[in-house]
Amino acid sequence: MRPYPTRCNPRTAAAVLTRRAVLRTVFTAGVVSATAAALAPVFRSRRTVAPAATPGPRPAPLFEETYRGRHISAAPAADGSRGGLDVRIDGRPLHVMRRADGSYLSGVNHFESFDSPLDLARAAVDELGSVRLAAAPAHHG
């Protein structure tokens, strides 16, 4: 899973961007593949590190609104799961995943992805109609 979406934590965002920029430079410089092999684990490890729990109050929501009569919200996930996001519809968690291109998939929409968590949540409401999410959704094993 990814860490938080970069926009919700400027410090992490800056670090990730810097490292990306460095790696891009290294790769475009055409450095021998041995170096690439050495860097690959570094590059991939970023994807698996869970963000440290943030002490203090809950992080501010990325968005919160009423859409077609349903309350939708997103905030950084406290445990780094669900694609780094805690998206809720009427208070119930929507399973969030990411694609390699950075777009978002949900437990409701597995066969299309969305550019932002807001688009993701709205699309889930569109698809659900009046159906409520389960209180404890099925998990991928």
Binding site: V108, L128, G129, S130, V131, L133, A134, P137, A138
Partner: peptide, 30 residues
Amino acid sequence: TGRGPDRKVDTGPFAHDRGNWEITVGVTEA
């Protein structure tokens, strides 16, 4: 198709009301 806002399929052999098609694995309450 599921006609109402609840998307419920209410025709054919897999309509819930026929008593043979209970969804037990899903991400919604339906």
